[in-house]
Design a protein around this nucleic acid. Sequence first.
DNA 1: TATGAATGAGCCTTCATTCAT
DNA 2: TATGAATGAAGGCTCATTCAT
Lengths: 195, 195, 195, 195
Amino acid sequence: MTKAERTRELIITKAAPLFNTKGVAGTSMSDILEVTKLAKGSLYVHFEDKEDLAHAVVDYHIERLGKAIETALGKADSAQGKLLAYIDLFMDPVNPLLAGGCPMLNFGMESDDTDQVIRKKICSFMDTGLKLIYSIIKSGKDNGEFKADWDGKEFSIRMFATIEGGIMMSRIAGDNKTMKVIARGLKKEIEDHSA
Amino acid sequence: MTKAERTRELIITKAAPLFNTKGVAGTSMSDILEVTKLAKGSLYVHFEDKEDLAHAVVDYHIERLGKAIETALGKADSAQGKLLAYIDLFMDPVNPLLAGGCPMLNFGMESDDTDQVIRKKICSFMDTGLKLIYSIIKSGKDNGEFKADWDGKEFSIRMFATIEGGIMMSRIAGDNKTMKVIARGLKKEIEDHSA
Amino acid sequence: MTKAERTRELIITKAAPLFNTKGVAGTSMSDILEVTKLAKGSLYVHFEDKEDLAHAVVDYHIERLGKAIETALGKADSAQGKLLAYIDLFMDPVNPLLAGGCPMLNFGMESDDTDQVIRKKICSFMDTGLKLIYSIIKSGKDNGEFKADWDGKEFSIRMFATIEGGIMMSRIAGDNKTMKVIARGLKKEIEDHSA
Amino acid sequence: MTKAERTRELIITKAAPLFNTKGVAGTSMSDILEVTKLAKGSLYVHFEDKEDLAHAVVDYHIERLGKAIETALGKADSAQGKLLAYIDLFMDPVNPLLAGGCPMLNFGMESDDTDQVIRKKICSFMDTGLKLIYSIIKSGKDNGEFKADWDGKEFSIRMFATIEGGIMMSRIAGDNKTMKVIARGLKKEIEDHSA
DNA sequence: TATGAATGAGCCTTCATTCAT
DNA sequence: TATGAATGAAGGCTCATTCAT
């Protein structure tokens, strides 16, 4: 890793929680300067402009969330275990994995009308997540864990939406009660479809 | 309605789509001046500062959304009809009721870490919505429309979360496919609990 | 004159010598702030941006130079007198009428490849000057002051060019010797064509 | 020529048209980096600072223009031929010998109030040019080509000024019409003084 | 000699807001 | 109440230059 790469990484990791917490528009380059303790022009050695940095930060969040999911699911050795692990990962929106909360909600809701590049990044990550859940269900049906007549497509979409909605509700409420209800509901549904 | 009140109302209604689309941080007082065609100082005759205006705009969104729900549900004369009407109201996130999309998602996600006043306004509106759905189910159980063993509390939370998550997903994707799957799922569940 | 107009005028008159001396690119908005003693944002109340101000300053120089020519020529009551008065106006390039020197040279040479709006402003003023000289010669021929076979068109162009070239040479040299030689030559030629 | 000398030369030749077109203040070191495709620090290996480079670029222009004059005049074998060749060299200001136009006008008008080093370089080159024209006339008078009573000093100054003024006018107008009128006038005057 | 990351002053401009009218 | 000129902090970004490698 060259010095430039290390500095670039430093900027991204320090900027990430700011963008995810205060939004892109709500975060100034000076805010980032402050947390990185870099000099004025240095940001522009590594990023063309604020937009370019914001995109890199979104990528970083996507990568971190993706890896967290991968790790969590890697520990489970059954399809059902993986689905439950996925849900558990989002069980505590008040103290989230990534400071500021779910980047899909944060960047997705800020960018849907204002930054198509970010919107598309989030969109493609969402697709990946959706496909992951679907593939777990499918493999669970293939190996006999889940009932063959379970509509995996419908459930994966609904599970994804419900979790995101639950995160939103819990963060707005400032407590995890809602999320717990939702998790229980989803888990029950999964168990009900166990063969 | 005095002239002052009318001007205040004008500012709010013109500012509302801007705030809901570009966010509070992403909208400048000049943006609002432009769409209202008012003079610079005028904004501050009616609002203390940008924050004050933002709060009024959030209230306005809440009121409009509340009335839209009330109207839609008023047309239905059964509990089941009301639940389905509620769902239908959010079926088209790409061309939403309020320009910019669901204000709970937009303002909720921007404010959760930055503006406690807005967060609480959204939170209390969310509670109202939740209680409304719950009360419809309850009255449906009371009048024999719904099965008595249906867990109304759990469902109202899950329905609310799923719809919001569906809105988020559809807006990020830029099409309503996801929302349709979700609506179908919720409606089926409601029908399954009909007595 | 409203307050705004007065402030606008103040900015232009204070900025004019700066632009004409250091060039548009070489003058910063802070330089202008300093001489006007205005606050940062104030410039942008009256001018869209630096370019807009630069254009206004060019207009101002054109107007001032135009009026100076008009005044000087107004005092002469013969065609020959007017031509000589014109030459005299440019006789002291080291202490020019307008601080920084001839705006046609300064703005013309800076803008020819960089700012077409300025270039065109200067071009049209140049045309006006050219036509003025030509019309004086013509009226002098009409009233019998000048020989009828004098080529007024050719001379007006050559006189204009020679004066501008002389200004350039004197300013580069830092003394008016060159300009004096040129003035003498032009005056002699004019006298040679007296009827 | 060492590698260092070659790099220095590369920088100068690439920077020259930029400075002559956009001015010293209007050209940034990054602009030069871009056209030379050199690394950031490299410029400062060969030049102390921007000023130093600007001075070298002025020298380069002076040298190139000097050589062009020398070459053009070398082809003529009479005094009159040399004078006409000089004029012809400046006949097309819209497509000038040096990109950006006459460096005496460009650098002279930018520097007269701002950079005394450049001003003096241009001034001394101007003197050289003036003396060259004068010496041609003198040798023409000596060898009987020109009338003995021709005021060579006055004419050389006037010719120089008229050409520079003509260049200025043609560049501002964006066409060579003016220059053609001027060239014709000067040439006629030269012929009129042929013995 | 050459590199390119780093610097921090300074660039033009916009911001939310105030104030005299 | 309404106006729009004025304010100055802060915005994002570029500048010429330095320095460790």
